[in-house]
Every structure is written in structure tokens, then in C-alpha cells.
């Protein structure tokens, strides 16, 4: 194969891997949108918050240390223990469930029957709140997240491709793990929603709130459930992104990248979130590779949005979305 094509293939593969991570965030969006019609802007911040909490638990940080020190003049920072990764993950998942309950009780319950745009703005408010809350709780410095996932160049792929084409592809181990985890997550979510009792209730609510209520499904429980699942998906996304590039504010910006993914895939489709993520991830890497150098580079910032915008003009409901039918 000619060199150019090899490099392009490598870029495309890396793009696919990045796309998996976008899909993970988009998945959380889709779950909440399907079950409650809420477009959850806070999903990215949820991922950030989960990752911050995980690091905090792992390192035995004292929550709110900064605030307590400022108010009482003490000098707290760490409890002085290290928790194993698995325990910390379980604890963090617990925190995400608690957060889901709090959000349902203090925010969503009061906003039933409001137009979608009000709910959307409420989630922006929640995003701001959580961002400040996470920073106050655990401090705003960039943290290293290490839960023992393999990282760095995958030597097998490097060796095999070098053998075959005379050029070793650089694929990060972490990206491979992320893809496997994403696949597992999608499979288990699909199984859950197809075959479990709660999963059926979830689909019923997604289909029609009022009909679901009338057959005795508790809407509030389903909302807590779905926000907990979204919190868990956020935790997984947070772990992946955090291991890759450290836990920091920019993590919450991946939520914005998940938006074009959603537009492309359709807001209501789980496979759509995955396919959309892959298309966006690969598309932006390839565009940067071929067109980027001609127009000054850093096109990754906007390519996804423009692609989604152009796409929507031709297919307003996205690739897999339900057809929008309007009645007066």
C-alpha cells in the first residue's frame, strides 16, 4: 500500500477509537432522552463529576477540604489511605445513584409538564452547579486517573502491521479497552431493556408517559433508574477519558462533542449513538488528515458540528431517529 493510504488508514482507525468514546457519552444522552424526553446537557459534567469522585475516593481525599480550610482555617487534605480501584468504582457508582435520586427529587419532579426547552435549560443549570460542586468537593487541579487499565502502544498490532505493510500502526491499548467496554455496555443495556422487567417498564415510559402511568409503572422510579444508568455510563466514560487525558475541566466539553454525534445518529436510537460516534470520530480525523493542513489545521473543533448540520438539512431526524410527524 502507498504510504499516504497507510497513514490515512491509521488516522481512520484512531478516529474510530475516539468515536467509541464519543459514543459512550452520547449513549447517556440517548438513555435519558428516550425515557424522559429531556435533553440532558449535564451528561458531560456528570462524566467529569464521576471521574473526580473516583479519583477522590481512590486517593482518600477529604471532600470539601478547600472550603473547610477556608472557613475554619484548618489544613485538611487527605485521609491518608488509598482505596483499591474496584472499591472506589463501586463507591462512585453509589454516589451517582444518590445524585440521580437528588436530581429527581429536587429538580425533575418540579418540572413535569414543562416544555422541553425549559427542561433543557434546567440541565444547563445543573451542569453549572455540578461543575462548581465537583470543584469545591475535590479541588480543581488536573488529576491523574489510574484504575489499572492498560495504556500505551499496542505492540501486537504494531508488529503485525509492520510485518504486513512495512509500517506499524500506532493504536493505544486504552482505546482498545474502551471499545471492548463500550461494546459490553451496549450489549448489556440492550439485554436489560429487552428482557428485564424494569427494562420493559423503561421502554414503556419511553413510548408513552401517560399510558405507562396508567398501567401502574412508577414514573419517578423509572426516572431515578434511568438517571442512575446514565450516571453509570458517565462513570465509564469518565474513567476512559480520565485515563486518557487526566481528569480536568475539558472533560465536560466532550459532552458538546456528543451533540453532533446525537444529531447524526438520531436522539432516540442507541445504535444511532454508536454509529454516529464512529462516523464523527473517523470523519474528523480523516478531514484533519486530508483537508486540515490546507486550511490551517485544528479543524476538529468544528468539523463534527458542520457535518451534522449539513446532514440534518437532508435528514432532519438523523440516521436512525424516528420520523418526525407533526400535527396541528
Amino acid at each position: 500500500m502507498p504510504d499516504q493510504l497507510l497513514y490515512a488508514t491509521e488516522a481512520a482507525l484512531n478516529g474510530l477509537m475516539a468515536g467509541v468514546l464519543y459514543s459512550l457519552v452520547a449513549l447517556g444522552f440517548v438513555l435519558i432522552f428516550k425515557a424522559s424526553g429531556i435533553f440532558n446537557y449535564a451528561q458531560g459534567v456528570l462524566a467529569l463529576f464521576a471521574a473526580l469522585t473516583l479519583v477522590g475516593f481512590q486517593n482518600g481525599q477529604v471532600p470539601f477540604a478547600h472550603l473547610i480550610n477556608a472557613v475554619f482555617g484548618t489544613d485538611l487534605h487527605h485521609f491518608g489511605w488509598q482505596l483499591p480501584a474496584l472499591v472506589a468504582i463501586v463507591l462512585t457508582a453509589g454516589v451517582m445513584v444518590a445524585l440521580a435520586i437528588v436530581i429527581e427529587r429536587y429538580v425533575l419532579k418540579h418540572l413535569v409538564n414543562q416544555p422541553p426547552i425549559i427542561l433543557f435549560m434546567a440541565t444547563i443549570g445543573m451542569a453549572y452547579f455540578l461543575e462548581g460542586f465537583g470543584d469545591i468537593m475535590w479541588g480543581a487541579d488536573i488529576k491523574k486517573l489510574d484504575v489499572g487499565l492498560p495504556q500505551g502502544l499496542n505492540e501486537t498490532i504494531d508488529a503485525v502491521t509492520f510485518e504486513a505493510f512495512g509500517y506499524g500502526f500506532f493504536i493505544d491499548n486504552l482505546d482498545i479497552v474502551a471499545s471492548v467496554v463500550a461494546a459490553l455496555l451496549v450489549i448489556s443495556l440492550t439485554l436489560f431493556s429487552q428482557y428485564s422487567k424494569q427494562g420493559r417498564a423503561l421502554r414503556a415510559v419511553a413510548d408513552d408517559h401517560q399510558a405507562a402511568l396508567s398501567v401502574g409503572i412508577s414514573l419517578r422510579f423509572i426516572w431515578v433508574l434511568v438517571w442512575s444508568i446514565a450516571g453509570f455510563v458517565a462513570l465509564v466514560a469518565g474513567i476512559m477519558w480520565g485515563s486518557k487525558s487526566g481528569v480536568q475541566f475539558s472533560l465536560s466539553l466532550i459532552a458538546l462533542k456528543a451533540l453532533p454525534v446525537l444529531m447524526l445518529g438520531g436522539f432516540t436510537s442507541i445504535p444511532g449513538a454508536i454509529v454516529g460516534g464512529l462516523i464523527i470520530g473517523m470523519g474528523e480525523k480523516l478531514f484533519e488528515f486530508f483537508i486540515g493542513p490546507m486550511i490551517g489545521g485544528a479543524t476538529e473543533n468544528w468539523f463534527a458540528y458542520v457535518l451534522a448540520l449539513l446532514f440534518l438539512v437532508f435528514r432532519p431526524q438523523g440516521l436512525f431517529g424516528e420520523k418526525i410527524i407533526e400535527r396541528v
Binding site: 429538580v107 443549570g125 453549572y128 452547579f129 461543575e131
Partner: peptide, 9 residues
């Protein structure tokens, strides 16, 4: 940040 977010909600 927290206050702005909370106020909006």
C-alpha cells in the same frame, strides 16, 4: 458557578 447553576434551576 454553583450559585449561578442553582439559581437557574
Amino acid at each position: 458557578l454553583m450559585i449561578v447553576g442553582a439559581l437557574i434551576v
